[in-house]
Design a protein around this nucleic acid. Sequence first.
DNA 1: AGCCAGGCTAAGA
DNA 2: TCTTAGCATGGC
Length: 322
Amino acid sequence: MTEKINVSDFALAPTLECGQVFRWQRAADCWFVGVIGNRVARLRQRPGTVEYELFACSRSVSCGQAEADASATGFIRHYLALDVSLPQIIGTFPEDAVLQDAVRRHWGLRVVRQEPWECLASFIASSTKQIVQIRQIVSNLARNFGAPIETPFGIFHSFPSVEAIARASHEQLWNCKLGFRAKNLLAAARMIDRGGIDWARICVGAASPPRSTGPVAAGTPLLQPRYDYESAMAELMKLPGVGEKVASCVLLFSCGFDQAFPIDVWIERALRRIYFAAERNVSPKRLREFTRSHFGPYAGWAQQYLFFNERTRSRGELSTSA
DNA sequence: AGCCAGGCTAAGA
DNA sequence: TCTTAGCATGGC
C-alpha cells in the first residue's frame, strides 16, 4: 500500500544521489528502492508529496508485509530530515555566488539521518574508491553478513551489525572487494564490539551501535552528556582507517553535527579553484580553517551542495545511479 | 597505458 | 609540525 507525505523544499533524487548514502537504486516508474535499518523502503516524489512503501521483518510485522501508519510516516520523515526547515538552513549560508548557484541548481537536497555504524563502515570502505565501487562493497557486505528482508519485489539485506563484521574473517571481508581497507574495517568493528569507543557520547539517542549495554554500575548516569565536535572527532579517530575526512562524514551524516565539513579530493579541488584561485600551494590546514570560518553552523549542508555541484558540473547525468 | 578514485598511516624532513 | 610514498583494485 502506498502512503503519502506532504513535502516542500525537498528533492528526492539529489538527496539520495549526492553521495551521502550508498544503498539506494533507481527502479521503474520513478521509484527509488533502498534499505533503512532493517526495513526496505520504496520512495517516489510527486508534486507536493513523497510516496512511500515500507517493508520489514520483525515480530510485530510479518515478513514482506507493508507497514503504513503514523510511525512509518514518522520514520521516513525523520530519515529524510523532512522535519527541519530548509530555507532556514540555507539562510545561514554566506552570500557566496558559487554556493548560492549550487543551492539554486540542487534546491531541496537534504542531509539525511543515517545509522552511525553503517555510515562509519561505508566511509572506512570509501578510501580512494569511486562511489560506484563503494556502493558495490556495501552491497557485498549486506548480502554476505546482513539479515534478509523479503519484499514483493525481491529479497534485500540489512546492513550487518557490528558483531557480524567483528566475527567475520579477514578473507571474508577481503572477498567483499575491500582491498587494503578490509583490515581497517575488521579492526574497527572488533574495537567497537569490545566497547573501545564511546558511541553514546558521539551520537546521543542514536540507534547504533546495536549492542545491549549490559548492567550499569550503581550511580552511573544512563545518558552521558554529548561530546563537543572536536572531542567527538577525536573519539572517532581512535578507530583504524578513520582520519579527519571519514570522521567528518560520520559526524555530519549520522550524528547530527551539521557543522562538519568533509574535505575530499573533489571538494579540495573546488575550494582551491573557487576561493583560492589567486594563490597556489594553499595548505590543507588553511583550507580547513577557511571552511570553518566561511560556511557557518550548517557548513556540512553547504558542503553537500558544493560536492554534488562539483560532481555534476561537467556532466548531465550522474554515473553513480547505475 | 596510465591516471585517478568521497584517505589513512608511518616515516622522514 | 608539515609533506610524501605505499597501500589494492577497477573504471575510464
